[in-house]
Amino acid sequence: MRSNLKNLAIAALCSTSIANVYAQESINFVSWGGSTQDAQTEAWALPFTGKTGIKVIQDGPTDYGKLKAMVESGNVQWDIVDVEADFAYRAAAEGLLEPLDFSVIDKSNIDPRFVSDYGIGSFYFSFILAYNKNKISSEEPQDWNALFDTKTYPGKRALYKWPSPGVLELALLADGVSATNLYPLDLDRAFKKLDTIKKDIVWWGGGAQSQQLIASGEVSMGQFWNGRIFSLQADGLPIGNSWKQNLVMSDFLVVPKGAKNKEAAMKFLAYSSSPQGQADFATITAYSPINTKSEALLDKGLSAYLPTNYTADQVSLNYQYWAKNGPQIAQRWNNWLLQ
């Protein structure tokens, strides 16, 4: 009894002194800005600070060039960065990242698609086919084929403009390649397929622009992030979508090599990837949790809007393939775009 009390007292003492140390600690969290980052602040940063006392300073937007420059100069100001999954693999290969400490982060419940030695999923989302109902006169489009069928579905197409996973895959799927045989990508075939609608493509570079294009009817359909479509639908706009062959992509959280607050960053990652953290983020954004335990914590009405609900139709994009071949594909991509 007495020793228990003593232990308790020591524990209490320790925890207060730790709390004091924490109070001065802070980490810099970098993401893409806008509503995604607001959601990350609300779902992760605020409760994390409440729990640990570690202050989370928000910065953005993510800039890969800056990240690399910081690591090379040895003056790293960022502790946690939200990056695209393929970049997480590429940066790890280039030696730009700290390995994660899985004694702090529990990865036993993380979907293995969304965790590597150097990064852990931030959230996952799908590229889905969406359309403006006012612009569709025939029956509603079912899959990526509709994008290439300009006769039945006239109007412009919105596609993601960066050379990253998604566009080439959907072109191949529409051309009849089966989901299991996608990789290695048949670039000639993909570009040939895209050539058929090249003049009808409007490229979008960010979420805001994509929403603007479809909401205004500037494009009749296209490839979109599911969360952006969700927020349009929640606003009551006449936007429809199909989950068939939804392409799974994700953002990873990584710690740049030489980050100044590495330990605190690991603790943050433990929280952000926890069932609760992931569930809270999903509730705000309609992006899917990467933690398999999170689903039980979600509101039932929401699941119709989450990629998690359409796993049977999912096609997983291969980040490792892109991490390795991305630069060459990008060169080809640029050439094709500028032709």
């Binding site: 893409w32 800005g33 806008g34 509503s35 953005g60 937007p61 960010g206 805001a208 929403q211 603007q212």
Partner: peptide, 9 residues
């Protein structure tokens, strides 16, 4: 700039 790229508001 960062808002403009991310959010339409």
């Amino acid at each position: 700039w960062s808002t403009l790229r991310q959010d339409l508001t």
